[in-house]
Design a protein around this nucleic acid. Sequence first.
DNA 1: AGTGGCACCTGTGTGC
DNA 2: TGCACACAGGTGCCAC
Length: 272
Amino acid sequence: MPELPEVEVTMRGIAPVLDGAVIEDVYVGDKPLREPMPRELLGLKGARVQGLSRRAKYILVSTDRGTIIMHLGMTGHLKVVKTGTPRVLHDHFDICLEGGTTVRLNDIRRFGLVTLVPPGEDPLKDRHLIDLGPEPFDPSFDGKYLKERLKGKKIAIKQALMDSKVVVGVGNIYASEVLFLSGISPKKQASRLTLAQCEKVAENIVKVLRASIESGGTTIRDFSGADGKLGYFVQSLNVYGHAGEPCKVCGTKIKSIVQGQRSTFYCPHCQK
DNA sequence: AGTGGCACCTGTGTGC
DNA sequence: TGCACACAGGTGCCAC
């Protein structure tokens, strides 16, 4: 489900509910997500939430008893419900707050993650976050950085953009979109991009992700923000999911190929 | 070190 | 209708 914009939209949705609130109760389901959820999460009963942030596609909820790290995987989403609302299939984790509100994680495929960083430890040094590349919105992320980082890479640029060590937050949808806007073939060898092309790609990553966040993310199947609102960026997608349709720029049929077991969409005429 | 392949898991749509 | 298979927005591990 979520790429960076969807995670950002989700975080903004739950922030007003969580920020400053006291945790009254925690529910930790039995089934493991990407890895089992630590029982220590139950010790958050009585903790106060101090703030929310995002690193890559991870949502960080800091409290006076440690930081909760959450990842939504492919199908995870957070909803805000009234405490006591019966759990449905694939509801795995609840943060119940004083005042009768609960933030609830539902994740069908269980590729998501919930873990806890003990108080006093830097959550950014957690093993899930420590090796991540720069945030696309960080000033250090630009064409020059990208050019340097792609040096010697023989993989296709599409796959390089999805590598979280290169840059975080660019998933399967936006990788295709960014390359379309940049006029670069997804099959082009990563190290072959010129500096000018790297600059264009870096700019378009920032542009597309920002625009998507402003539209409330991209709803392909069932994504919605914590408020249940759908994301409208799907209407702005140029190539993703449009195989066989005419390119909006030149009319050539959009092609679909598979790279690294993931679908890629591109215009064979506009992208070289 | 870099890379391709696969595993994790459930649901849905397609074609026979 | 039933079944088999492909595919889905992510990530990490493994063998080469």
